[in-house]
Amino acid sequence: MRVLGIETSCDETGVAIYDTSRQGGDGLLADALYSQVSMHAEYGGVVPELASRDHTRKLLPLIEQVLAEAKMTRAELEGIAYTAGPGLVGALMVGASTAHGMARALDIPVLGVHHMEGHLLAPMLEEKAPAFPFVALLVSGGHTQLVAVQGLGEYTLLGESVDDAAGEAFDKAAKMLGLAYPGGPEVARLAETGDPKRFRFPRPMTDRPGLDFSFSGLKTHTLTTLRQHEEAGTLDAQTRADITRAFEEAVVDTLVIKCRRALDQTGLKRIVMAGGVSANTRLRERLAVETQKRGAEAFYPRGRFCTDNGAMIAYVGAQRLAAGERDVPGEMQATPRWPLERLSTPG
């Protein structure tokens, strides 16, 4: 089944085509991505109205691009999948209306899929793909969650952030430090020049049992440290880098400690990490060490599939469409808040 996937949940327009007759990443026939980062950077964050307009402008040309790369016509598509949520409602509606319009014109099935399920299963597109069951760490700008995964649609939430997600914490720390948006890559770059021994920031919620996260206190600690040095006249370039390194080390340690606990609690030997923050090099290195100690394996999507993309939506949509799932004709889905554990098992 050849499925067109459309991702328009926030500030990236992603389109891809996946063929279920092939295995894993070999099924990805074409994918394209347009990022709005430069447009939103001057505002220091995503402007929803601008995001929706840009999706409208870019979506159809990207669809034509991936069809050409896959050497296909629209008539050869057998299904369409789109991100139905969570995300910005206006941005979601652009993808949903385009998907439903095309599906009706082509008389093929259409399905809205969960954005975070896309991230969770993005490593299935890699040559080294995980087998079920596994623990998943979903770590992005809007979500930080630990999930036990038994199969497609079989998800149990183990823990999540009670305030800021890790990606939000990176963006807010970057803003405090005067770094560009998006903050994650900028923080990582500056942290490379920082002294890891100068400051030690708290590892929030690691001194108590459980798998929930909290990063708001760490954000406050970072701001307080910056202000103290600013008032003392000691906030030079090296101090900024040292503070950045301490912040990144604290986030990475916290995530790894919770992953370790999740593996111990579930007894599973595989962990998947996905979402924008999963591209962080130090986080990958630390998680690899911890999993190796436990005789476990870690799996990640390639860098370009860590951020929002159409390939993950095409893959998940293809699995569910092939299992017989469909949207009700004429009923588009756009669900800004959509808990992952509410998803059904196909079939």
Rank of each mutant, 00 (worst) to 15 (best):
A169C: 15
T98A: 15
M124D: 00
F134H: 01
E69K: 09
L60C: 00
D164L: 04
E126D: 08
L59G: 02
A129S: 15
G183C: 04
S161N: 07
A68I: 05
R74G: 03
V187S: 03
P61R: 05
A173G: 15
G85F: 06
P182M: 10
M124C: 09
A75M: 02
P109L: 02
K128S: 06
A131K: 14
L92E: 06
E76A: 11
G159D: 09
R74S: 07
L60E: 14
K172P: 09
Y82R: 04
D163S: 14
P123Y: 02
V187M: 05
L92I: 12
I80A: 08
D171C: 14
L120T: 08
E154M: 11
K128H: 09
K58R: 15
V113M: 01
H100E: 13
L137W: 09
Q65W: 07
E127F: 00
G85L: 02
L88N: 15
M176W: 08
A174C: 08
E154N: 11
V94P: 03
Q65V: 06
H100P: 00
V149N: 07
L157R: 13
L138R: 07
A70Q: 05
E76T: 14
A136Y: 08
E76F: 05
V94M: 04
L158P: 07
G183M: 06
A180Y: 06
L137Y: 10
L67H: 03
E160H: 15
P185T: 12
A91H: 03
R53P: 00
P86Q: 09
H100N: 07
A84C: 08
L158G: 05
V139R: 00
Q150T: 08
L120G: 02
E160M: 13
V94I: 15
G184T: 10
Y181R: 03
H114G: 06
G142F: 10
M72T: 03
A75D: 10
E127Q: 14
L67S: 06
E126I: 01
H55G: 11
G87W: 01
A188S: 15
Y155C: 05
R104P: 01
V110P: 02
